[in-house]
Amino acid sequence: MTYQSYLDGEPVIITAAVTGGVHGKEANPNLPETPAEIAAAARACEGAGASIVHLHARKENGERAFSTDAFQEVTDAVRSATDNIIIQHSTGGTAAPDELRVEPLLTDPAPEMASLDMGPLNRYGKLTSENTRSLVDRLHEVMLDRNIKPELEVFNGGHLNESLRIIDDLVAPPYINLVFGGGTTTIPHPRNLCTLADTLPPGTEFNILGFGPHQLPMTTQGLLLGGHVRVGLEDNLYYRRGELATSNEQLVKRAVRIATELGRPIATPKQARSILGLK
């Protein structure tokens, strides 16, 4: 994926990260937390142009849930509410024991995709999501066994090195999510995006995730470099400075507008499956 991909007008895959697990309604009351709310958000995002929905599970009070049962409830609700969107489960979970990190992969049916963190990520003042190689390999083995395509979460440039450990075992094309934000993620800057995009393994499809105020500029630059984009309230609570986003759909619609103006057609779920080599 390159600037030539942009010039060629190749379709862009939009992923909607609708809920997450770090913040909740205390930060933005429009953020969906219950399975019904998440399903309604996924439906709206699909209608707006998203072809992948990235899911987390929560308890009734908004707190994190990792069990297969919790993910089953969410994924069933989303499947019932949507037409053809690709379902991607998160396997992230700062401090959660490795046994729980596997659970989102064990729903019936398995998700078509799942996130796979490539290395450590600092949280708050004292936490680190370690994402050891041992855990990465274990999650990846389950994904291979269950025919789940991993999205490799590259929080910084060193995690591109980590992705090379498993790149040969991936079903083509590798799908890498470049993450820009604070802390241990890559510093959000156009040059850093260019550098990372230039050093991706050959044949890679890539996605851009920018946290907070970086969601709009980083994803827009990603469009110009032939990348795909992820938007949603998990990563960004605001539509613009000082103005909370009203919904995930609002953020997807903005991404669609910008991509369309730039000449990138929006990938349908069917096209997204073809681009990503999903069966």
Binding site: V22, R58, P97, L100
Partner: peptide, 16 residues
């Protein structure tokens, strides 16, 4: 109000 992830620390969950 506490962020959901931080609530796991408050409740001493997951070894936190």
């Amino acid at each position: 109000f506490v962020q959901p992830m931080r609530a796991d620390i408050c409740n001493n969950r997951y070894g936190l």
